[in-house]
Design a protein around this nucleic acid. Structure first.
Length: 499
RNA sequence: GCCCUCAUCGUCUAGUGGCCUAGGACGCCACCCUUUCAAGGUGGAGACCGUGGGUUCGAACCCCACUGAGGGCGCCA
């Protein structure tokens, strides 16, 4: 195989979405697998839809996921790096004009002076007549004299491809096998718009050729435009790259994933606390598999084993629950110190963005976070759950319903008594370690003739304000004696005061 | 309407003619572990492999038709 050069060619019209990023991932994996080159090219040929922040967002998304490009926009998002640049199509206009002219010279293309209004009317008529929509080739065979006249008059025009009407065009798609189209069903698509910008079709072919792209890996939605591209390559006398059309990522309703299906920007997943490795692992599994059983696949393994042959053909519904599960697996695999570091920014977010309550001072004490992290590591699925899971570690004042203190099979008086005894004994406890605390309290439970679950349950609520927490005595150890004792005493007051 | 693609548990998938009375994973349920919640372990429910025809000694796997779903049909990519 000649050297692998693949590109990810998004148009900067918004944040990078999941489907788009999955395409980037597959291209990147393929390049890595074959020691090839992964190229980022910005297809900004639509001035109307261009969103300025988009290029930065796309690069941010790729960087976050660790998908580095050898050629493409430079890190500042302005210049380009790599030998075939620039990698912004809007900076390559001369090239497209040159090739559009060449196509006109060789009669593979022609100028079309039809107004948008006329095109619209034609389309409407076609719709009414239930005829396949498409350009009616009005200008395909305009006399040279009229073309000259229109040009002299400065009439806005586009350049269209003169689609041959005989025969068929086939490709051998690496994912789908042979696919064939009747040429007479293909219309005379636009190559150059009246604003002198190329369409996607022209720019794409010219650039893929000039950048020596070996494999075009893109989503299935591009399959229908592939015969047009192949015809263009032929018109230029160029060899076309190999094609591989990947399955679409679908929403729950089985339609193409879009904004309608909720937050689909990868950056939103980053902000919710998904780990980049978990994200790539999950995305890779949407349309590709390593074997019949492996789910957690380290990046290096992914690279080693990635192959187009194992890409699925059918579209895949995005399953958020599985993503959460995978993320949980990656969180558990983290070193506690790493997790602590990743968690802190999420804890410090404003309360209404999922951070700790507003009453908790920022910045949080990192040493303290490091101590509690081991207690919540296996209970976390995404980083943004951290604040909810740990807020009682930080709060000065707990607020909860005192009735929660009374455990199943116990009453108020019994609970009060148990809590008082616990408080007394704990108060004299010199060594505030989980093990010692547990021994002491187990003995007391026995003495009180209470089940450990009952007794510990009451203490748990007293100390944390919750019924579900990390292991009680470890929690108390992290909380510290002073804070634990204060909470115990407060619980007694609250319960006693309750009617 | 026309063109193209696709079709195995709810979901992601394994499966390329006999190893399939269809395997794994998420989710769900139960049990074990256990001071709660998780994590972990074990087990379970869950797919007559879209339907109907072929081919073959034998089909989830090959062929045809149908049906269904999706994508495309812009001076958007």
């Amino acid at each position: 195989m000649k050297s692998v050069r693949v590109r990810y060619a998004p148009s900067p019209t918004g944040d990078p979405h999941l489907g788009s990023v999955r395409t980037a991932l597959f291209n990147w994996l393929f390049a890595r697998r074959h020691g090839g080159t992964f190229i980022l090219r910005i297809e900004d040929t639509d001035q109307g839809r261009r969103v300025d922040t988009s290029v930065l967002a796309i690069m941010e998304g790729l960087k976050w996921l660790g998908l580095d490009w050898a050629e493409g926009p430079a890190d500042d998002g302005r210049g380009s790096k790599g030998p075939f640049g620039p990698y912004f199509q809007s900076h390559r206009l001369n090239l497209y004009h040159k090739y559009a002219d060449q196509l006109i010279q060789t009669s593979h293309a022609y100028r079309c002076f039809c107004s948008p209004a006329r095109l619209e009317a034609v389309r409407r008529a076609q719709q009414q007549a239930k005829v396949p929509p498409g350009y009616d080739r009005h200008c395909r065979d305009l006399p040279a004299s009229e073309v000259e006249q229109q040009m002299a008059a400065g009439t806005p025009h586009v350049v269209r491809f003169r689609m041959p009407q005989e025969g068929a065009t086939s490709i051998h798609d690496l994912v789908r096998g042979d696919v064939t189209w009747e040429r007479k069903l293909l219309d005379d698509f636009v190559l150059l718009k009246s604003d002198k910008f190329p369409t996607y079709h022209l720019a794409n072919i010219v650039d893929d050729h000039h950048m020596q792209i070996s494999h075009v890996m893109r989503a299935e939605e591009w399959l229908p435009s592939t015969p047009r591209h192949v015809m263009l390559y032929e018109a230029f006398g160029w060899q076309h790259p190999q094609f591989a059309h990947m399955p679409l990522i679908l929403g729950a309703d089985r339609s193409k994933m879009s904004k309608r299906h909720g937050s689909t920007s990868v950056l939103a997943y980053r902000d919710e606390g998904y780990l980049p490795d978990a994200m790539t692992n999950f995305l890779a599994l949407l349309g590709w598999s390593l074997d019949d059983k492996t789910e957690i696949i380290p990046r290096e393994e992914m690279i080693r084993h990635f192959s187009i042959e194992r890409i699925t053909k059918a579209g895949a519904i995005f399953n958020p629950e599985k993503l959460q599960w995978i993320n949980g697996m990656y969180i558990r695999a983290l070193q506690p110190a790493e997790l602590a570091e990743k968690l802190v920014p999420f804890l410090e977010k404003p309360a209404d963005e999922g951070g700790l309550p507003a009453t908790v001072k920022r910045p949080v004490n990192r040493a303290y976070v490091s101590k509690l992290v081991p207690l919540v590591q296996e209970r976390l699925r995404i980083l943004s759950e951290g604040a909810e899971l740990t807020s009682f570690f930080f709060e000065e004042q707990l607020s909860y319903d005192p009735a929660l203190l009374i455990q199943k099979g116990m009453d108020k008086a019994g609970t009060l008594n148990a809590l008082k005894l616990a408080t007394e004994q704990l108060d004299t406890q010199p060594v505030w370690g989980a093990h010692a605390l547990e021994e002491l309290m187990r003995a007391l439970a026995e003495q009180l003739n209470l089940k450990a679950g009952q007794f510990f349950g009451a203490i748990r609520v007293a100390v944390t304000g919750r019924t579900a927490t990390p292991p009680l005595f470890q929690t108390m150890e992290v909380l510290g004696k002073e804070r634990s004792m204060a909470r115990l005493r407060q619980s007694i007051d609250m319960l006693a005061a309750q009617a």
